[in-house]
Structure formats: C-alpha cells, structure tokens
C-alpha cells in the first residue's frame, strides 16, 4: 500500500469499517511511514473539530412564522378512498400474498367452470350415443334393402358423430 492508497482508507480505519486484509496492509504502511502517521493524526483531529462545530439554533419565532405560513396554505383534504388506500398499510410480502391468493382464486374458478362445461358436453354425448337403435330407426327414413343388417340406420348424420362405422363388408354394387 502506498501513501495515496492509505489516505483513502483513513475514514474506514477511523470508523472501524475496514476489512481484515486491507487493515493489515494499512497498518503495515502506517507503521513505517511517518508522513502518513502525522496525516492520520491530523485527519482524526479535523474530524473531531467538525463533529464539535456548534449547531445553529432556530430563532425563537421560527415555529410561529411557520404556523403563519401554513395557515395560508390550503388544507389538503384527503378523499375517503385515498385515505383508505394510504391508511391500509401492510408489509410488501403481505401485498404479494394477497395478489397470489387472488390469482389462485380466479384460476380455480375458471378451471372449475371449464371442468363443469366439459363434463356437461360428455354427458350429453354419452346420452346421445346410448339411445336405443330401434328408436332411431323408427324416426329415420327406410334404408335401401342393401343396407339391411349392416347396423347403419337412416338417422341423420349428427346423431352418429361418435359411432365408428366400417364399410368394408357392405355390398356397394358399383356405387360409392
């Protein structure tokens, strides 16, 4: 450590805010440098003098004058909602927790609603596929004789959305 570097650590040394390695290096330099020893003592004395500077006191009419000036200032009325917001003071983590709870609640509600909707769709579809074939056949128009015994009814297509049909065994007679 040289003299310039040592000067930069005067405050830290005086206020005991110096790390161990720097302290050792600083003390090693101070021990062998008379100039820095003198400067360090002067530095400490200066600091004491600054700290002991007499304080400037307020004049006796300071508060009175201030109150007169404040009387001219419009009294700020805080709206109720603002007072509510400013009055509602919580630590930061509590605000975070509140946001988290709110977000989880919204997610839960949305998820539940979607679950109910999808269950309802499934129930409707299952009900439709579970209808007895006789009933559907009676409502539809009669099929040509070639479709008899294939399991295909004359019901409109939308009723058979989920039904798998195999055409491999159906005699098409050159059609299709």
């Amino acid at each position: 450590m040289n003299c310039l570097q040592a000067e930069n650590h005067f405050s830290a040394h005086l206020e005991d805010e110096i790390d161990y390695r720097t302290l050792k290096s600083f003390e090693a330099h101070i021990e062998q440098c008379e100039r820095c020893q003198r400067e360090y003592v002067l530095f400490a004395q200066t600091l004491t003098e600054v700290e002991e500077l007499p304080h400037v006191e307020p004049s006796p009419n300071f508060t009175t004058t201030l109150h007169e000036r404040l009387a001219d200032e419009p009294r700020i009325t805080v709206p109720f909602w603002k007072r509510l917001v400013y009055g509602f003071t919580l630590p930061r983590w509590a605000y975070g927790a509140l946001v988290l709870v709110f977000a989880s609640s919204v997610t839960y509600v949305v998820y539940q609603r979607e679950l109910v909707d999808s269950n309802r769709e499934r129930v409707v579809t299952l009900e439709q596929t579970a209808q007895p074939p006789e009933a559907t056949r009676t409502r539809g128009t009669a099929l040509p004789s070639g479709f008899a015994g294939t399991g295909i009814s004359s019901q409109p297509m939308q009723h058979y959305v989920l039904k798998q049909v195999s055409y491999t065994g159906v005699p098409t007679q050159g059609g299709l």
Binding site: E7, S11, A12, E39, F43, T46, L47, V50
Partner: peptide, 11 residues
C-alpha cells in the same frame, strides 16, 4: 473521506 482530507489540508 475526500471531504475530510480536503478539510484536513486546509486546517
């Protein structure tokens, strides 16, 4: 620290 050094030199 710089301010204190300046004061020290002046005083």
């Amino acid at each position: 620290n710089r301010a204190r050094l300046i004061l020290k030199d002046k005083l």
